[in-house]
């Protein structure tokens, strides 16, 4: 990729600038309890600590005090049928410390989510209704296949 093709860094040269960064980061729920000014991310495996700090600072305008990173080994599993071994992807975890006066609590996204059984019931009644509709529509032409209509 031409836009990703940079000359190698030699000491004394200017620091490289990333033109169109392709890094991704996702904010994840911390494992266990955490101080209020600490946020956990998962990020691209290629990202360094400097990258993470710059990414959050420049793109999201988040002040960052410290970044620690950790790579979690993906789990090895044996395929049940065939018996070969498969491995999940490794995950790079970034533990980002914000300034002392900042607080972040991971929001509860499904707090107000509707009850699932209720929704399923609703979908079922809807399906029943549409099927009844279909039967009613074709009452007078029982021998004609369903696809035969305008």
């Amino acid at each position: 990729m031409s836009t990703r093709w940079y000359p190698i860094y030699q000491r004394g040269n200017p620091q490289l600038r990333v033109f169109l960064p392709n890094f991704w980061m996702k904010l994840v729920r911390p494992r266990g309890t955490q101080l209020p000014n600490i946020v956990h991310f998962e990020c691209s495996m290629e990202m360094t600590k400097h990258d993470i700090k710059n990414y959050l600072n420049k793109i999201y305008n988040i002040p960052v005090v410290e970044v620690r990173t950790k790579i979690f080994l993906g789990k090895f599993k044996r395929d049940i049928g065939k018996g070969y071994i498969v491995k999940d992807d490794d995950i790079k975890n970034a533990i980002v410390t914000l300034p002392k006066d900042m607080k972040f609590e991971y929001p509860d996204i499904f707090e107000k989510a509707k009850d699932e059984t209720e929704e399923q019931e609703k979908a079922l009644t809807e399906a029943k209704k549409s099927f009844q509709n279909y039967i009613d529509r074709n009452k007078n032409r029982s021998d004609v296949p369903s696809w035969f209509s305008i």
Binding site: V39, N61, P99, M102, F104, P107, F110, K112, A113
Partner: peptide
């Protein structure tokens, strides 16, 4: 100091 910039990682609330 704005702390809600971190909320940009989430969808807008009405879509939750």
């Amino acid at each position: 100091i704005p702390s809600y910039e971190l909320m940009e990682f989430f969808d807008s609330k009405k879509n939750w």
